[in-house]
């Protein structure tokens, strides 16, 4: 039985889709069978970030409405053969996402994949609550910035009350993924520090993804950043986060804390 992960945040634009794609690809690159499911009905973007936008035939709503089989809607990645995408519908109303339909889809996927990664839409409406409903583990994507931290706190509250696990009296496993972290700004004291965010949200840290041009470049090309350039800093951070997710004990390095002499001089310009 595979594990169901929800990638959520409350706030938009913090990196849920980027992180879903990158973590999904990283896990699949290790040989695991992974499906990434887009729950953002009406505003799908995971297909674009993963470079499969031209190959979408059917979507999640088609499957839930019985218009297509699940196997027909899954799109296999052209680069990693154990990586699949289930796109959201672009034209349908999000009310077509029924709780029963989502449950059937997730339960079927769980049997066929090692990891089912649910990319949640922003907000706390239907799409977001359905994306988290069946999760075993939640990844809360947060930027070191006040409104993002506040929204993450709200989402953590929902994870502890509105999910199947919570309703059954079980504890939802939650991890913090700090994205768009700029070491230079943190050093100058212009950005919330890692410890500040951890103290406020008090959930364990899965990884810190440094702010980087490489993430933008990867999305331009339609490749998860771990596939576009596996050696760049954000890709390495995602690979490590994926290993932690799989249960490995790996210390989290705070970007910029072990800056070399060279890095100190050029660090602020090179991003």
């Amino acid at each position: 039985m595979g594990k169901v992960i929800v990638v959520t945040s409350g706030k938009g634009g913090v990196g849920k889709t980027t992180s879903s794609a990158a973590l999904g690809a990283a896990l699949a690159q290790n040989g695991d069978k992974v499906v990434v499911v887009d729950f953002d009905v009406g505003l799908r973007n995971l297909d674009l970030v993963m470079g499969a936008e031209r190959r979408v035939v059917y979507d999640l709503v088609n499957v839930i409405q019985g218009e297509a089989k699940l196997t027909q809607a899954l799109i296999r990645d052209k680069r990693v053969e154990t990586l699949y995408l289930l796109p959201a519908s672009q034209t349908r109303d999000k009310d077509n996402l029924t709780p029963e339909g989502v449950e059937t889809v997730i339960n079927t996927l769980k049997k066929a994949f090692d990891w089912v990664i649910c990319d949640s839409p922003a907000g706390i409406e239907r799409g977001a609550t359905l994306a988290m409903r069946h999760a075993d583990v939640a990844i809360v994507v947060t930027n070191p910035e006040v409104s993002s931290v506040r929204d993450s706190d709200r989402i953590i509250g929902l994870l502890d009350s509105k999910t199947l696990k919570a309703e059954n009296g079980e504890r939802m496993e939650k991890h913090l993924l700090l994205t768009r972290y700029d070491p230079a700004r943190a050093e100058r004291g212009d950005m919330l520090k890692v410890d500040d965010v951890l103290e406020i949200l008090s959930i364990p840290l899965l990884g810190i993804i440094p702010e980087s041009m490489d993430v933008l470049r990867a999305s331009n090309l339609g490749a998860p950043v771990t596939l576009a350039d596996g050696k760049c800093a954000p890709a390495v951070a995602y690979f490590n986060a994926a290993r932690r997710l799989a249960g490995e004990e790996l210390p989290v390095a705070v970007p910029g804390e072990k800056r070399s002499f060279f890095g100190k001089i050029f660090g602020r310009k090179a991003a």
Binding site: R54, R55, V57, A68, K69, T71, Q72
Partner: peptide, 9 residues
């Protein structure tokens, strides 16, 4: 339904 594959590009 399981015996149908549709591909679009």
């Amino acid at each position: 339904g399981d015996k149908v594959t549709v591909k679009m590009e």
